[in-house]
């Protein structure tokens, strides 16, 4: 009984789930968008300026993280104590100091670039691990229901009420403060989010006719989960994962603030914000630039995720297909419809 109560709760974890949950055509929707193919999705993207810009920003940041560190060489670690805290936005000291220098005279630009890789190499694996473990577990628990579901939900409760700070200290103490270990902590603490969402979706799906049909034809539970449940649940979970990237970046930065996150000489955006905070009054750029990097990345990812959510949902998709002017004109018309 209890499980059905949380079901709705977990589904409501994210807005993405709602259109699909409300309109019964979730599964059909996915098929439709697949038939349309990638090209039309791309055209739709170009129609939405905000989404296009977001996509470009993300691609740019992704490329930076991928190849930037190699281009920067040792610029990010080259210190010059006589050249500390130089103000940004001037080419007087060469392009590498366009964003100023940090408290040890290192190029802010180079450090931001190198930090982007660390930031993503923490955020993406943490989200990926939590997503995979949490989703599979949740789908499995939701499909089978009964004690498996109950035990899983109680485990999620346990993880959620466990202080992640303690985990961080334990990991730092027993292992070493590497980014791999930060990934471990963040992944572990975020598993319940996916677990709860996936379980709710899957619990609802397992009672649907197409799953029933598969069952009557003698398909094994695991095969049904893989073939019928996961494909339907996946878009919701992926959208959730996009939102979670932001949370994980912030969590990593909070750990740095408390002194138990990424440790120098490694550098991440979160660590840069945290280390730069003491210079807020003397050299604001040390913490503002990495902060802006986090905010821009998050907004871009969110805008794109929101767009993708609509674009893959047949009940909403017409909004994107319409030319902008007609779209705006249409809504009031709809509202005043008697």
């Amino acid at each position: 009984m209890k499980s059905s109560l949380t079901e709705g709760a977990a589904r409501a974890q994210l807005p993405a789930a709602l259109p699909e949950g409300n309109s019964d055509g979730t599964s059909n929707g996915k098929k439709d968008s697949k038939q349309d193919g990638k090209l039309s999705l791309f055209r739709l993207l170009l129609k939405d300026r905000f989404a296009t810009v977001s996509a470009l920003v993300l691609i740019l940041i992704g490329l930076t993280a991928l190849i930037g560190p190699a281009l920067m060489g040792d610029l990010a670690t080259k210190q010059n104590l006589l050249f500390a805290n130089k103000a940004p936005f001037t080419f007087a000291h060469g392009w590498e100091y366009f964003l100023g220098s940090d408290s040890l005279g290192r190029s802010m630009l180079a450090r931001l670039v190198v930090a982007s890789r660390t930031t993503f190499s923490v955020a993406l694996p943490a989200v990926a691990v939590a997503l995979i473990v949490g989703s599979l577990w949740g789908v499995w628990a939701g499909y089978h229901r009964g004690w498996r579901e109950n035990v899983s939900m109680r485990i999620a409760d346990v993880i959620m009420s466990f202080p992640s700070l303690l985990l961080a200290v334990v990991v730092l103490y027993v292992f070493s403060p590497s980014s791999a270990n930060i990934v471990l902590i963040l992944a572990l603490t975020r598993i319940p989010i996916y677990l709860r969402t996936a379980r709710a979706e899957s619990a609802e799906l397992q009672s649907r006719t197409f799953v029933d049909a598969a069952r009557t034809f003698g398909a094994k539970p695991n095969a049904i989960i893989v073939r019928h449940v996961i494909p339907v649940v996946l878009p919701t979970l992926l959208t959730l994962a996009t939102l979670e990237c932001c949370y994980v970046m912030l969590a990593e930065s909070s750990l740095s603030f408390l002194g138990i996150g990424i440790q120098p000489p490694d550098v991440s955006w979160g660590l840069m914000v945290s280390q730069g905070r003491q210079y807020l009054q003397t050299a604001w750029w040390l913490s503002i630039f990495p902060g802006v990097a986090i905010v821009v990345t998050t907004i871009a990812a969110n805008v794109l995720a929101a767009w993708l959510r609509i674009a893959t949902d047949p009940a909403q998709r017409w909004r994107l297909a319409l030319p902008r002017k007609r779209l705006i004109a249409r809504i009031p018309a709809k509202e005043t419809q008697p």
Binding site: V169, P177, G259, I260, P264
Partner: peptide, 29 residues
């Protein structure tokens, strides 16, 4: 500024040809 100092020392000792790894730890550790 202990974090900065640690990084400076790591850099300067590396310049001398030594293989230095910076380990930032919390108090108890």
């Amino acid at each position: 500024k202990i974090t900065e100092l640690g990084q400076v020392l790591q850099e300067q000792l590396s310049q001398a040809g030594l293989n230095v790894k910076l380990k930032m730890l919390e108090t108890s550790q």
